[in-house]
Nucleic acid binder design. Sequence first.
RNA 1: CGGGACGUGGCCAAGCUUGGUAAGGCGCUGCGUUUGGGACGCAGAGAUCGUCGGUUCGAAUCCGGCCGUCCCGACCA
Length: 486
Amino acid sequence: MAKQNKYGPTPMSEDVSAWYNEIVFKADLADNGPAKGTMVMKPYGYGIWELIQSQLDQMFKDTGHKNAYFPMFIPESFLKREADHVEGFAPELAVVTHAGGKELGEPLVVRPTSETIIGEMYSKWINSHRDLPVLINQWANVVRWEKRPRIFLRTTEFLWQEGHTAHADGQEAMEETLRMWQVYADFALNVAAIPMVMGEKTPGERFAGAVQTFTIEGMMRDGKALQSGTSHYMGTNFAQAFDISYTDKENTKTLCHTTSWGMSTRMVGAVILAHGDDDGLVLPPRLAPTQLVIIPIGRGDDGERCVEAAHAVAKDLRSAGVRVEVDDRDQGPGFKMNDAILKGIPLRAELGPRDLEAGNALVAHRIGEVDDDGRSVKEEIALTALRTWVPEALDRYHDALVARATSFRDENTAVVDDWATFETQVATGFAEVLHCGRPECEDDIKDVTKATPRCVLVNGEDATGSCVRCDQASAYGKRVTFSRAY
RNA sequence: CGGGACGUGGCCAAGCUUGGUAAGGCGCUGCGUUUGGGACGCAGAGAUCGUCGGUUCGAAUCCGGCCGUCCCGACCA
């Protein structure tokens, strides 16, 4: 299963790292590292991100959010206004000290996240209870100078969306926090085909400056967890620091309650790691830049007729909303099929002279059955039926991926109450345990097993008893999921 | 910043122990034959062996400094 290749940890064999070249290459732009840990996404890889963007953005529109844009450079002093926030981010800031040929009076930091600059703006924008709530999202790049970058999972610069909302009271802000948390989980399941474990971060893992952080955690094919989206309730922490306040109906100046929530290009990594196999990528149909590739077969006049027919079918399918390509490159059909497998294209259709004569295409699924020779079992579909068959097949494919990922997650998740079982369980999957909640106990568990608390299962059943590691009483009234993580 | 490994055409790499002027594969270019599951033949382009210095008649190879990369750890969407 999980093997290392030169691009980092992937569930793929080392000899299929070529697929990676289709979507990314590691930036190697300078000797002394300004681009260290940065990724360059090729069109196919960026296409996955574009699809994440457009579909997530539509969900935000549905929840009433508007997009805006804020500056990339933030005065250093802004960061310092919220004590926990600056403490959390200070070690990983990129700071601009010189600009326009001279030293700046006050350094500018490249945004690691935008709570502060947006907080500064909100304090000017919000005056009355009539101005609330403010529901804004930003699509942006941010920079965090991590000590150990990992391609897709933790790059120095990454793309994301960050939502920032301000509300009249804590209850409304908390409802917003939970609502967007659910939006992320829905997106992961319905678009990325990844069933998430939902929970609340323990105090040691919560966002710098937040009162509560809610997370969705995906299980990758090696049993490790990947935090894939977070939603934070800030209470009045940032409102206080930036004076985000309004005059209420009783003419009293009142602090807002704020939230923020984000999902990043890490989601591309989640898709790769959650679905990929030893043959390469496996893309969920709703995030596949190409959902169906048509491979014309044959040569000479036969071949030309097949290419022509393939383009005609493709044109028709495009009008039905299918992302389809015709692979008419000067390569053998075997090459093209393996290339499509490598890229994780959900469906591929062979169209040869025999098929054309019969009015069919031979369609194979990326995660479909294979025969004894390792070749895909193929279905004959009438060319005239493709227009309705393909969209339905893509939906079925999505459901099959969800089912596969869900059973994988569930098979590798266990409720655990004793330490010995815990140690073996977190070596390959998730363990749901009772925990005392003490940071030193979390550290102890990490030292011994490399596992960390992913989240408290706040929506799970009530549970009390003693900590799986020490003898102290459990702290949360709920179980906590522990696992190794990226 | 600690602990380990390693720098040889675009990529993967052999050669280093036992110094004698860089093998092979992928990819790339051209021609021809191929094409229902990663084709083949022939021809061709492409390397100051990370860098600086030392030893030597001679250094990819031995010695030293420097630079860089990767992995493990701390950090982390």
